[in-house]
Amino acid sequence: MKKCIACGMPMTSRSEFAMGDTSKDYCRHCMRPDGSMQSFAEKLTSMTEFIVRTQGLDASVAERSAKAMLRELPAWEHYFDHGS
């Protein structure tokens, strides 16, 4: 099973892939309206909002957690290469 490189979501059906294209490595939630993959800053914002919407956590806690989650994903490895 393929997992989105930008958020880790399993992509089991065609509709979950960006643009419905199963050759893509990212999902529809991590895509911009033009079909390209969101930037790190965009993903950090959307992931933070996702955590707040689903659990109601404090925004600063949500952002810190989102950053820690992105650190583990292949699309963003290079953002953390220097321990930042």
Binding site: G8, F50, I51, T54, Q55, L57, A62, S65, A68, M69
Partner: peptide
């Protein structure tokens, strides 16, 4: 360790999203 909290937050958000 903080990573444990991160894992728990991740799994709860996923569960809540599907719940929705």
């Amino acid at each position: 360790p903080p990573a444990a909290t991160t894992s728990l937050i991740a799994v709860q958000s996923i569960a809540s999203h599907h719940f929705g």
